[in-house]
Design a protein around this nucleic acid. Sequence first.
DNA 1: TTATTGCATAAGTGAATGCTTATGTTATGG
DNA 2: CCATAACATAAGCATTCACTTATGCAATAA
Lengths: 104, 104
Amino acid sequence: MAENDIFKALADPTRRAIFEKLAAGGMNASALREGIAISQPAMSQHLSVLRGAGLVREERQGRFVRYEVDPQGLAAIAQWLAKYRAYWPRRIEALKGLLKEMDQ
Amino acid sequence: MAENDIFKALADPTRRAIFEKLAAGGMNASALREGIAISQPAMSQHLSVLRGAGLVREERQGRFVRYEVDPQGLAAIAQWLAKYRAYWPRRIEALKGLLKEMDQ
DNA sequence: TTATTGCATAAGTGAATGCTTATGTTATGG
DNA sequence: CCATAACATAAGCATTCACTTATGCAATAA
């Protein structure tokens, strides 16, 4: 199940930091390392996990590989969250109606 | 950070199953075991993790402990997700406005 | 009071996880 | 053509994790 891959991928703080950095704009793996204390293989492995979860997608550009956020993974989380909308705090309760539209 | 606890808690499929069962209605730990092949200590440990993540809360009732979904954890996920709303698929895009209200 | 039930905690174990170093592959620059 | 840069993969290792069995404790039942 992809759901399991997604939550497992996000369970690691380094991977969430990578994802957050990518959300500010797509970039290649080397540029992604700047500011994060991490080796090249470790970054490659993390990106592989994020990609397997559908949270990130890659596009080869010659010698570089550009990574960017993949909306699929985020949509899966939104769907998981929607299952429990009965328990969302009241401030978010207004979302219910729109989530109904989303189901169509 | 509680965010880390939440994603780590949800990274386990058994814990997600427990959470889903609780979402259908609060119950005590023993009742929760029915239908899930799990030992009593394992259930107790899982509930402890879910509780530490703010996904579940407990209420002691004499010899029993009633567990139920805690909206706090769900709200934290919603907030995390909101950070990346720029990448949500178009069908969910309408949520943007309401999430703005939620920020207040 | 005594036995039992509901639950938590401690300690040990095997598997999974995230890291490292080493190496391979492909593409660009000189 | 050759050196280098970008990236992936393999293998080994330490830590974490989810489980087990054993035990403890508090509340109800008998």
